[in-house]
Amino acid sequence: MNMNALKEELDGDSGMDVWTEVVALDQIPQLGSRVIATDTMNIAVFRTASDEVFAMKDECPHKKGPLSQGIVHGTSVTCPLHNWKIDLASGEALGPDEGCTNVFSAKVENGTVYIAFR
């Protein structure tokens, strides 16, 4: 997906969420994730056991490990490289570790996952 196009689309918009359809919910494994490749970054979309979805930049605040490849549990993901635990909702490292990853709003409607780019 082209982020510049997206940004253009957003210009003139007063910061309202623009929901973009990304994938059918059942295409993401429960307690798993998918990766959306954009021009500027990879975005990880996670699905929890209770079918909540979360989206964030696919980059661990520690050493940029791909969070999409981690193990999802509750509403957090453990980074595959050095086991930092990241809160899916806020993008913040849990426990004594400090750091934060960009998050995007995500929702499910009629079995389809949408992400808000703003």
């Binding site: 494994p29 050493k63 595959p80």
Partner: peptide
């Protein structure tokens, strides 16, 4: 259960530092 396996075993390769 694939989602209960560490990424290396889920992707059947060793993840490298650059992903």
């Amino acid at each position: 259960d694939a989602q209960s396996r560490f990424i290396n075993e889920r992707a059947h390769g060793n993840i490298q530092k650059d992903g």
